[in-house]
């Protein structure tokens, strides 16, 4: 327990240091990188949150986009205030995900995977064909109010870090345990009278609303959003973060997102080799280090360093 608290304390310290860095660092590029790391960590953690009930949710990318577009519309077309437009993102993402989940979570495994994939691509198609949303070129002009401009990076990092801690708390709560029970064998929670479909939808809505909020933050961070930012590839990268960091613990996706986002900053100069490199890293991590970095640590601790870990 003490050891766990130590880890949590460390995480809180890192989060506070990041907020401080965003507040006082003069270099906008590095501040931007810090926000990217946190955004990607949220994407990976929300993807893993739905993995708790055993479903691979490509629509993470779609709800990230829905959040970003909601905030953009609220801010530039409807002239809502900064915080109201940010708050609209998780609300709309949550409502749409509740509807989508109500229909699709009756299916499992490959069906859910494919339908969430198709949903992501079709939502993206919808943006490109809707003139009011800027079509292919997307939307521009989401700026935080002048008074908040200097503090915006710190606000963004604070929101994103709060999401991470919130999802950690949710996973550790009784609700999180029920989600894991559904993953192990959903007939058992059902046999004690739990509404399994309702709980699955709840898990899905929590993940989608939070990733929608991250999307809203993304809209303000970037000031420009386009349909091409929200392809299924966003979820694929998030999955790569989860796999490389390890899905056994919530720290895994965060570590994975940090490493790969920082590595990605160097890889941008690689041009066509970038995708090859990502592909090789994903395949290598899957086949050689099945438990990810967190899994490696756990194996090291238990002395079972040799041999394949459980996937």
């Amino acid at each position: 327990m003490l050891k766990d608290n130590l880890g949590l304390t460390l995480c809180i310290l890192i989060a506070l240091a990041s907020i401080g860095f965003a507040l006082f660092s003069g270099d906008p590029y590095y501040v931007q990188v810090v926000i990217w790391v946190f955004t990607n960590a949220v994407l990976a953690v929300t993807l893993r949150f739905v993995l708790l009930i055993g479903e691979l949710n490509i629509a993470t990318a779609a709800f990230f986009g829905i959040g970003a577009y909601t905030t953009a519309v609220a801010s530039t077309i409807m002239d809502w205030t900064f915080f109201a437009s940010l708050l609209a993102a998780p609300v709309i993402a949550g409502i749409i995900s509740a509807l989508f989940g109500w229909i699709t979570l009756r299916t499992k495994g490959p069906y859910f995977l494919l339908i969430s994939f198709a949903f992501t691509e079709i939502v993206r198609l919808f943006y490109t064909k809707t003139e009011a949303l800027g079509g292919n070129s997307g939307m521009i002009g989401m700026f935080p109010p002048m008074a908040l401009n200097d503090y915006f990076p710190a606000i963004a990092v604070t929101i994103l870090a709060a999401i991470l801690f919130g999802l950690y708390a949710a996973e550790r709560s009784n609700l999180g345990r029920v989600f894991k029970a559904i993953q192990n064998n959903e007939d058992i929670p059902r046999s004690v009278g739990l509404n399994v479909i309702g709980l699955k939808i709840l898990c899905f809505v929590i993940a989608s609303a939070t990733v929608g909020l991250a999307g809203g933050v993304h809209a303000y961070t970037n000031s420009v959003i386009a349909p091409a930012d929200f392809t299924y590839f966003v979820a694929v990268l998030a999955l790569a973060y989860v796999k490389i960091g390890g899905e056994g613990h919530i720290a895994g996706p965060i570590i994975g997102a940090t490493i790969l986002t920082l590595a990605g900053q160097f890889l941008h100069s690689f041009g066509p080799y970038e995708n090859i490199f990502y592909g090789a890293i994903i395949i290598g991590a899957l086949l050689l280090v099945p438990g990810g970095i967190v899994g490696l640590g756990a194996r090291f601790k238990t002395g079972k360093f040799m041999g394949r870990a459980e996937r």
């Binding site: 691979l56 999955l239 790569a240 995708n275 090859i276 090789a280 994903i282 899957l286 996937r311």
Partner: peptide, 20 residues
């Protein structure tokens, strides 16, 4: 399912990059 999805995505990136 999850493992093979990740593997096939990795292959997709690797092979498409190579074709390009």
């Amino acid at each position: 399912l999850n493992g093979s999805f990740i593997l096939s995505i990795g292959l997709l990136l690797l092979l498409n990059g190579t074709y390009l």
